[in-house]
């Protein structure tokens, strides 16, 4: 029997596990709620825009809903990825999981595979929902309010937002394996995608840009090559995203294979 067969069976089991965790559906509901709230905010913004004078309209910033909603989506979908492993430590079911698949790196790879599927699937759905909100609510209103006057303009952003949710989900699995605690893993993911970007704003401009450029949510516009104030090229953004995954999963693999199970 090959390692790929073990991985395939383990991944199939992980799919059953993630489907039967209530927290999975709660976090998905969180993504839906935040997307709906993003649409509501955009609706009010459009109302305000329509009531403004032409001179004021020119001062409106781009109403890209992915900027508002996707960091929260990254958090909620990343939490699903982290829970794939931390829920097993919390409920002590990591024991039976390792008895069933004692090849620990293969088990982690199976969890990462499932997290990747969830990240890509959910990332695409929520990014498309945000795009649909924008198309429906912004209609044919012009730039700068409308970030995507043509629907094809949105394609790089939607794709790159999907990729960054995928990346966050993989990072979350690695963090979960390294930290073994749901609270610690969710706090760290929240810190990475929600808190640090806000804190970065309080730094002097040069340091703000340096730090903000390597934060997960800000990699989306840099990877898409759209208008942004950050410092990285598309290749640089891709390298930073890859580094997040390699470091987090590497730390998770090291912790899982070296430490006693419980």
């Amino acid at each position: 029997m090959t390692s790929s067969t073990i991985w395939r069976d383990a991944a199939a089991a992980e799919l059953v596990k993630v489907r039967t965790l209530r927290s999975t559906w709660a976090f998905l509901a969180g993504g839906v709620i935040v997307t709906a709230m993003g649409a509501l905010i955009l609706y009010f913004l459009v109302q305000s825009y329509d009531a403004a004078t032409p001179a004021d309209r020119a001062n409106y910033e781009t109403a890209d809903p992915t900027v508002v909603t996707m960091p929260f989506v990254m958090f909620f979908v990343g939490a699903i990825g982290a829970m794939l492993i931390t829920s097993e430590y919390t409920t002590r079911s990591i024991g039976p999981a390792l008895l069933a698949v004692p090849q620990r790196r293969i088990l982690l790879a199976a969890k990462a595979g499932v997290a990747g599927i969830i990240g890509l699937g959910c990332g695409a759905v929520f990014a498309l929902l945000a795009f649909a909100d924008a198309r429906l609510l912004l209609g044919d209103r012009p730039a700068p309010l409308n970030p995507w006057p043509q629907w094809t303009d949105a394609v790089p952003t939607v794709l790159c937002a999907t990729v960054l949710v995928f990346v966050t989900c993989l990072v979350a699995v690695g963090l979960g394996a390294a930290l073994r605690s749901t609270a610690a893993a969710l706090t760290t993911i929240g810190g990475l995608v929600l808190v640090t970007p806000m804190i970065a704003h309080f730094l002097p401009t040069v340091w703000h840009l340096r730090l903000a450029s390597v934060l997960l949510p800000n990699l989306t516009p840099q990877l898409a090559g759209s208008d942004h104030p950050y410092l990285l090229s598309q290749g640089g953004a891709a390298a930073v995203a890859a580094a997040y995954v390699i470091v987090a999963l590497g730390a998770g693999a090291l912790a899982l294979s070296r430490r006693d199970a419980s």
């Binding site: 059953v16 039967t20 409920t91 002590r92 079911s93 999981a97 069933a100």
Partner: peptide, 27 residues
């Protein structure tokens, strides 16, 4: 090898059948 090291080592939110189905699927 069949082993039980901890009677509480099952996710409380899953049903008995689902808990076993996860183990079964992995092997």
């Amino acid at each position: 090898v069949g082993a039980v090291l901890d009677a509480d080592a099952a996710h409380p939110g899953r049903t008995a059948a689902t808990h076993l189905a996860c183990l079964a699927r992995s092997n």
